[in-house]
């Protein structure tokens, strides 16, 4: 990175450290931090969308739709965490390949499951075996986002479902008295009001989502945990210009600090948003604010 880094063996102290921390693999580590942040930024809204859909489905008057909404939330919430992460990635991958296989190779006569192998025609492979490396990585990342969204969507659905029920019944009745249809009352009255009730649950979910990101490592994405393991291991002089003993402790300590800081910052920000949202609301929090000001 820096010009004085050409011969690391002559360096000492801080200048050695500055060179060491800017090697190519370390840059990969920093990129993976960005990847985690991007994943959070994409997953949060998508999961919220899934959750909103499932919560509205669970309230629907149409029975199969209600079953779908309730079934989705209770199944995902009832089964242990990482089992889902391990399960979904393979299952989604196979589902996509199976669908493409049905569309692209209709005249394929062999069975797809041959004993312990899952065989689809070449054109249906995802991503195509000829495609470049970045496509494979993006596809893996996409699967990870989808998995996170499905799992966290179920949790968000539960929170939003509770929030929708927490909106005072009188509000809906008033809307109906004004002649609004069910749909209008839902979009104009219920949805704008539910967020105050949903925020405590959603902020809790955000904390949980932050803490779930190291599991990306299990999904086959080269994330921070992967690079910390890779870089922290013992390095001998034969393979690197920066030989060092086993430094896993330091790398994982850094990860721990990263997550603690992230949590702390989120806590502060969410507390502020909550304060903003409760202002003037007819809830205990809003009442407390009013009294404090008076």
């Amino acid at each position: 990175m820096f010009s004085y880094c050409t011969d690391p063996s002559t360096l000492e102290g801080l200048s050695w450290l500055s060179c060491y921390l800017t090697t190519g693999k370390h840059l990969n580590l920093y990129i993976s931090v960005v990847v985690v942040l991007v994943l959070l930024a994409i997953t949060a809204p998508v999961a919220l969308l899934f959750g909103f859909g499932a919560a509205s489905a669970a309230r629907s008057k149409f029975l199969p739709l209600r079953w779908f909404g309730k079934g989705y939330t209770s199944i995902v919430r009832g089964v242990p965490d990482i089992a889902f992460f391990l399960f979904f990635v393979i299952a989604l991958d196979q589902a996509f390949e199976w669908m493409r296989h049905k569309v692209k190779c209709p005249d394929w006569d062999q069975p797809i499951r041959q004993g312990i192998d899952f065989v689809v025609c070449d054109a249906a492979k995802l991503p195509l075996s000829a495609s470049p490396q970045w496509v494979h990585e993006t596809y893996g990342f996409f699967l990870a986002v989808l998995t996170f969204s499905i799992v966290f969507g179920a949790f968000a659905a539960n929170v939003l479902y509770g929030a929708m029920r927490a909106v005072p019944r009188a509000q809906i009745e008033t809307a109906e008295a004004y002649g609004m249809t069910t749909r209008q009352a839902f979009w104009r009255i219920l949805v704008p009001q539910m967020w105050v009730y949903a925020l405590p649950g959603l902020s809790n979910l955000w904390m949980v989502l932050i803490k779930a990101t190291p599991l990306l490592f299990l999904l086959g994405v080269e994330d921070i945990v992967y690079w910390a393991r890779e870089l922290g291991g013992t390095k001998t002089e034969r393979f690197t210009e920066y030989p060092h003993p086993n430094w896993h402790v330091w790398y994982f300590a850094a990860l721990l600090v990263f997550y603690l800081c992230f949590t702390k910052v989120s806590e502060v920000v969410l507390a502020r948003i909550m304060k903003r949202l409760t202002k003037g609301q007819a809830t205990a929090g809003g009442e407390a604010q009013r009294k404090a000001a008076a």
């Binding site: 932050i210 803490k211 990101t213 190291p214 896993h248 994982f252 949590t263």
Partner: peptide
């Protein structure tokens, strides 16, 4: 409480294992 509730259990495991190893 903040230390153990604010960080992922997964990382805690990794960190503890590395600690015990050294």
């Amino acid at each position: 409480i903040f230390l153990f509730r604010g960080s992922p259990l997964f990382i805690q495991f990794f960190f503890a294992y590395a600690c015990f190893l050294s």
